[in-house]
Design a protein around this nucleic acid. Structure first.
Lengths: 338, 338
DNA sequence: CCAAAATTTGAAATCGCTTTGAATGCGCTA
DNA sequence: TAGCGCATTCAAAGCGATTTCAAATTTTGG
């Protein structure tokens, strides 16, 4: 069913039918209704490729993922949020996976040259993100989930990682903890650097010297967190509190604590960052988990809205949002044992 | 940079340039090389929309996900596999999320009418899957990850869930277990029904009557598995072994066992189905986990290949693969305590 | 009641590619 | 040298939508 067929069926020109369907004012209300009704009845939908060619907009945004690992639970949640919002606008998400940095850059070049997408979403940026620089150069609209510090201002949405970790650390210090371990993200990622900054700031404010042995940098998975926490718990004096970078990390730390014969919330405290996974509720855990909380799915929704507004013409340099992070205290954090 | 520009730049017609780039035989080797070199140098890439309109193929396959929950770790892994293989072929994955069954059906109709995708991938089918029926009716090529039993033969790839669970159950029975609990997927899903069949078959072969209280049906998350396992462990006599539907489920069961003051691999046995998540290794757990193993990522890769072959003209009715499942015995399964 | 303005419709150009059908140039044979 | 076949190349016609510009119709105002 092409526009042409529909027009013939209605005894109208393509022009009029197209206008009627797209809500242009210069078509009488009578015909508009007739057209709309018939189109719906016949299940007409414009051919996506033709529409894109004619309008010059592809109706899709790209998301490039570095294969293994990056498409984990965090990304899933984020994509779920994004996709839900985009879907409402009939904009699709184009998923592309690559194996390494080279390929990722090549993928952006391809996307730009072939105009497959109207914009892309960049995530987990580094402090000086070369991908953002490339996209600027390619004049491809984009938005950053996180922040980076290249010369130009780029649109971004981020949570206040520094403040979140600073608060959590300060709280633990207030409770009397002095050996506080942090399981942070990979070195170089902006969010991890921000978190480390928050951690150090809080320690410095209390005159506590940070111990490098208590700082771990890794991906956020149960397994590696378990191993790192395990080795940290073998230190003497051992850490009395953990800051876990994500709920996955928290699960690993949890296991390590139990395996060491210790009790979470009594012998060892923990505050985890909670990205709010629908299937992993901090409140339902035993003991319930103290968290710094910010929904990554909500961030996905908002990122979608922001990119839509940029595509609608909003100046990209005006787009930036810093979200505060809640500190929710539960049973996993308490005073150190003495 | 359009084809026209490139052609002018070369002093050739669009026709010749297009042919040169697409490897048609009727262009001299000299010009072909010259064209290829210049195109590469100028970074020419055909406009995706125009190409799609001209060729009638969209160069994308669709994946419709039911919002919450469905975009979890299993799907991520599967998509990672699919996407990697598709990417090599320059075919994109279009991600669409919907909120319910109605919307999902509507999404397929839209995809078909607007020709946004050349094919779709269907996952977690039910025994009589209406989505598959709809896609047949819409003449939209598709492939099933899993199986369904509607009249026609449809292309599918599945793992042998029945045999896997039957073997695992038989093994536990051989060890002497009689109260074996199973944490299965949602009722109605083909894979869950197949697993239940395998479970019942094994029990029947030993003359053990299945206890409905030991059968759980739910989504595969840590949380719900924890709750279900917890209540099962309160039964008297309590189950001495668990079959966990996924590694996520296994984590929840693990927690419930420990919380009940029991020791996995001694007081209670467990065999989990392992979809092989790169970040959750059964071998590294404490105790290491006995599993029925089949990589869901590999399935994603293969699904991509199969859909490509269907698009290339292979008769869909010839496409079906049943993958065997390994049983890997580790420390979490042993004889029951007496 | 007629000219002018406003409303409503349509023919044709356009987007950037592929592909059909025709044209060009060249070397050979007869 | 005319004529044929072959290898290359090109002009132009799609693909299915939007959009420009012009035409037809209806309304309005004097």
């Amino acid at each position: 069913m092409r526009l042409k067929d529909l027009a013939e069926h209605l005894g109208l020109s393509q022009t009029t039918v197209s206008r009627a369907l797209n809500g242009y004012p210069e078509v009488s209300e009578t015909t508009r209704l007739r057209v709309a009704e018939t189109a719906a009845r016949l299940g007409y939908r414009p051919n996506a490729s033709a529409l894109r060619l004619a309008t010059g907009r592809s109706g899709a945004v790209g998301l490039v993922l570095r294969g293994v690992g990056e498409l984990g639970p965090h990304m899933s949640e984020f994509v779920a949020g994004m996709s839900g919002r985009m879907g409402a606008e009939e904009i699709d998400i184009l998923l592309i996976t690559v194996d390494n940095f080279q390929e990722e850059m090549a993928a952006y070049r391809r996307l730009a040259a072939s105009q497959k997408v109207d914009a892309v979403v960049l995530h987990s940026p580094t402090l000086k993100d070369q991908r953002a620089e490339l996209l600027l150069e390619l004049k491809m609209p984009f938005i950053l989930h996180g922040r980076t510090d290249i010369g130009t201002t780029v649109p971004w949405l981020d949570i206040d990682n520094r403040a979140a970790v600073e608060r959590a650390t300060s709280h633990l210090l207030d409770l009397g903890h002095r050996r506080i371990a942090i399981l942070n993200g990979l070195k170089g990622r902006t969010f991890a650097e921000h978190r480390e900054l928050g951690y150090r700031t809080a320690l410095a404010a209390r005159g506590v010297t940070p111990d490098p042995a208590l700082v771990g940098n890794s991906v956020f998975t149960d397994e590696v967190a378990f191993r790192i926490a395990q080795s940290m718990l073998e230190l003497r004096p051992r850490p009395t509190a953990f800051l876990a970078g994500s709920m996955m990390t928290a699960l690993g730390v949890f296991r390590a604590i139990r395996q060491a014969g210790l009790v979470l919330g009594k012998d060892v405290s923990m505050i985890a960052h909670d990205d709010v996974f629908p299937y992993l509720n901090a409140d339902n855990m035993y003991p319930s988990m103290s968290t710094t909380r910010s929904s990554i799915r909500a961030a996905g929704v908002r990122i979608a809205e922001l990119i839509l507004s940029i595509l609608a013409g909003k100046p990209p340099e005006d787009v930036h949002e810093l979200w505060p992070v809640e500190l929710v205290l539960r049973e996993s954090s308490g005073p150190p044992p003495f």
